[in-house]
Every structure is written in structure tokens, then in C-alpha cells.
Computed example of a mutant assay.
Amino acid sequence: MDGKTRLGDFLQTRRSQLRPEDIGVPTYGERRRVPGLRREELALLAGVSTSYYTRLEQGQSLSASPEVLDAIARALRLDESERRYLHDLARVDRRRPRSRRPAPERVPEATRQFLDVLGDIPAIVLGRRSDVLAWNRLGHALFAGHLDFGAPDRPAQRPNMARQVFLDGHVRDLYADWPSKARAVVGNLRLVAAQHPEDAALHALLGELSATSAEFASMWADHRVKACTVTDYEMRHPLVGPMTVKQQAMSSGRGPVVVVATTEAGSASRAALALLAQATGESVARADPPSEAARSRSRAGKD
């Protein structure tokens, strides 16, 4: 699928998801054959002509200015991630890049050092296609303990977390609210696909997932966009049971992303994570400080 098709599909899908009554467009009680806003209504909200917007949605116009795109984004009620995605799609249209297979992704030495010091915190390093480039022991144990720990060091065998979320029963069962996790994965892949339209391996992955997972295909067709930054998930680990973790994605740019999972101090989730660390031979260096009651018992024992 080329850039102009993706742009048109995105505009049409998001337009169909806007209900006239939600944004104050009068319908005068008429019955509509299709859901959402009509092209002329969206064009009016964006301050452009209906003919121009129609050409844009049909991929017949390659000259949309940033100001026009921003106006359309406001009319569609897009958030910041979705607005950037719209601009990326429009740039793809103008560049018309050739598909190519980029060089294998590698983990910078500074990132490896950062991973080493996070020994008590589950962490994995993901490439832009969600390939696992590296992980520490606790990150491996939390997210994919059933896989070979050394797999990320072999580029041809690297696990792909998007593929694992949709096609691996173990990873799927980790998430109490699997659809929420799955939608986040799809939304992030949409952002990456617009930023890297030339990445043949990425588009091969998207094609594979669309062909092998009806759920992925349905979510992909919804055109939702989401940047994975900070999200709370209820996880059900087979070794230590349920826990609530905050997954945070950290990146210095468009390179690899470090995803860490943290838990609330003093919580049952923190205790479960510490138990997982013990079970995998990890020592939790930054353990919770002892409570006042525990300190009192310790002092009483010494008296």
C-alpha cells in the first residue's frame, strides 16, 4: 500500500468515526447511509473546499501544506500523536520512497551499559519493528521467560514483541487486558510505519500479522494511532502471579527504545517482582526501605 492510499484510508476512517452530534454538526433528523461526517462537513470544519478535501482523501493531491493538515487534524479531533502521523503520511506522499531493507539494528554501547545498571528493574531494548535487541535477566523473565535468553544476540532469531503479543499464547496470557496491550502495539506500529515507509522488513511484518491474526487485521483497519510512552498493565505471571506494572518507553530519538517495568513501592506487585528476581537468580539492589514497624521490631530485638 503506497503513501497516498494510507493517507486517504486514514482520513476516510477517522472521518467515519466522528459523529455529527459530537461536534455540533446539525443533521435535522435525517437518516444517513454511512456513519460519521460527510466530506463536505469535514471540509467546512477544516476551512477548505469540498473538492480539495475530496482530492486529498482520494490521493489526487500531493500539495497539502502543514497549515492545511493542521486544520484537518483539528477538524478530525486528532491528538498530538495522530497529528504527527497525518503529517508523516503526507510527507510519504511527496517523497514516494523506494522500499529497501535497512541495515540490521544494533544496540549502542551506552544503551547496553544502561541496561546493565537496571539489573533490579525489568528492561528490554526494542528496535523500531519491535524486535528485541537486548534484555536484562529480569526483563527476559517478566516479558518472555519461555524464550531463549540469548536469542536477541542472534539477529536472525530475535523475538519480535509485536508478533509475540498476537501469536504467542504465553505472552498473550501475561496481560489481563490483552486487547488494551494489543491496541497499543498496533497504534505504535502505525506511527513507525509512517516514519519509515521505506522499511521493507517492517511492511513484511505488518503483512504477516494481518494474514495470520484476524484481530491484528481488524485493529490495523481501525487506523488508531498511539505512541507507547507510559502505560499501566495488569500482568499475570505464571511464576509469581498477578502484578500491576508501569511500562515506560524511553528513547533519545528514533533509535532503539528501552522499555522498563516498575512497580509501586511497598505493594504486592513490588513483592511479586522481587520474588521473580529471586527465582531467576537476580538480586534486587534497590529494595524498598524497611517500614517503621520493621525497624521498631529490629530495635526491640536488640534491646
Rank of each mutant, 00 (worst) to 15 (best):
Gly59Met: 03
Gly139Lys: 00
Gly207Lys: 10
Arg112Lys: 11
Asn136Gln: 09
Pro66Gly: 11
Gln164Met: 15
His223Tyr: 09
Glu82Ser: 15
Val284Cys: 13
Leu118Gly: 01
Leu89Arg: 00
His170Asn: 13
Arg297Pro: 02
Ala103Ser: 12
Val68Asn: 03
Gly207Phe: 06
Ala123Pro: 04
Leu205Met: 08
Gly266Ala: 06
Gly3Ser: 13
Ala287Val: 12
Pro20His: 06
Ile124Phe: 01
Gly150Thr: 11
Ala141Asn: 06
Glu30Asn: 05
Leu7Lys: 01
Val259Asn: 04
Asp70Lys: 09
Gly36Val: 07
Asp168Gly: 03
Asp9Met: 11
Phe166Cys: 05
Asp131Arg: 04
Ser218Lys: 13
Gly169Glu: 15
Ala144Cys: 14
Ala64Glu: 01
Arg128Cys: 03
Ser298Arg: 12
Gln164Cys: 13
His203Trp: 11
Ala265Leu: 14
Gln278Cys: 09
Leu76Ala: 07
His196Glu: 15
Leu115Trp: 01
Tyr233Val: 07
His223Gln: 15
Ala64Tyr: 01
Pro290Thr: 07
Leu209Ile: 03
Pro104His: 09
Glu208Thr: 08
Gln164Asp: 08
Arg137Pro: 04
Asp93Leu: 07
Leu209Gly: 00
Val225Ser: 02
Val260Cys: 12
Arg190Lys: 14
Glu198His: 11
Leu126Trp: 01
Val258Glu: 00
Ala46His: 05
Arg19Val: 05
Leu209Phe: 02
Gln248Arg: 13
Ser180Ile: 04
Leu202Cys: 06
Leu205Arg: 05
Met243Cys: 09
Arg129Leu: 05
Ile124Glu: 00
Arg6Asn: 13
Ser130Glu: 03
Pro20Asp: 06
